[in-house]
Design a binder for these strands. Sequence first.
RNA 1: GGUCCCAUCGUCCAGUGGUCUAGGACACCGCCCUUUCAAGGCGGCGACACGGGUUCAAACCCCGUUGGGACCGCCA
Length: 416
Amino acid sequence: MLRFEDTDSERSSRAFEESILDDLLWLGINPDGEISRQTERLERYVEILFRLERDGFVYPCFCPAAPDKEGHGPYPGTCRNIPPDERRGRIESGESFCRRFAALASGLTFRDRLRGDLTFDVRLGGDFVLTRADGTPTYTFAVVVDDHDFKVTHVIRGEEHIPNTPRQELIYRALGWEVPEWVHIPMVLDSERHKLSKRSGAISVSAYRDDGWSAEALVSYMATLSWSGAPTDKVSSPDELASLFDIDSVALDSPVHDPERMRHFGRLSMRSVSCEKLLGELGEAFSRIADPPDEIDADRAALLGELLPECASRRELSDSLARAFEIAPVDDELGNERTAWMDDLLDRLAALPSQEWFTMSIKNILKKFQKERALEGKIFYHALRATLTGRDHGAPLALLMACLGRKIVIERLGKR
RNA sequence: GGUCCCAUCGUCCAGUGGUCUAGGACACCGCCCUUUCAAGGCGGCGACACGGGUUCAAACCCCGUUGGGACCGCCA
């Protein structure tokens, strides 16, 4: 099931829900039950609230909302002991108030499946808010009611929720409800070892999707964080991962997000898609070359195959492709590579009709020419490459020339 | 500041008292292959935070120290 915890109207919108659902579906995580929304269950929370109030766990608090920032410590319980008469009076006079749960236990112990028994003095956290002045429930409260109503058996969440758990445990006990199994898993840290945030370079799922990462690569990488059961030598689907998963083998220290390790899975995933398919997707990049060969795709597919293994996403591939075609700003050293034989080679190549402009035929010309002139391979190819691309390395030359197209090759060769 | 969580290579994970001169993956370095760069194959560098216990024996158990993190909202 999927539940939107949307009681904070300022931070919730249908647009957010849409994108969350989109991300989940794209990742291959499909909610198989109903989709619920806390804002649609408001009456239920009120019902439970009244029950807690009747049993004396809850009281109205007239204090102004949060004295802005400055975490001074817990709420001191100011309104807990206001006499009933005064309470009634203030409520009737229209004073605004929230409702708090009186947290009185000095030593509350709950069991975390991974960490064992954890004991808290809940008084130190202060009395917490169950419903806001506008009557809406807080997450802390609504979630307990929902989990109970939806018969949730396991609450698996980030360890930042640990301080929250004793409070919810209190609510369960006050209601006499069966407590779910608590599992607090570590949260992913950035390279500075802080909670991953936009500021620290965390990128949204949709951004990765837009850059052409495969969902399986992302999921496979994430599975390796804190969990030793995740395969490191292949990408896996959410279903495969799920069948392997064992909650008890989750490590307890917080993993640091490593983009390089993530790229490893991206590359693995890219390699599993065929060059022909990629060619279909990236055809446009090729058509931008001035002199595209006719319908012969073999060379272009081969070029993709050459570039593919080091790319973690479609975006990286298309960037790599663009780089292969462009002529780099030549530095002097490379720019002066032009030699006497260049004009002769140009003639040879120009003699090759565009219908025969393929890797193999170009390769033959190159080889023959090199042999005839007794040019050292290293020098020959290096000079040629430098003149053609401005770089001293890249994809195999004949292949590159085939993909670059006859017109451009002749143009570049003739220029310098 | 208070409360709590955590602690093995740079990073992610193995390791649950002897089989650990600590294993794998990513990264890095080298070699091979190759006209170049990648990819691939082979190899290398590299860690049990520190100090006390317990034990015949400790990366593994206990305590302390140090370090890192989270939380302390009418956010979730």
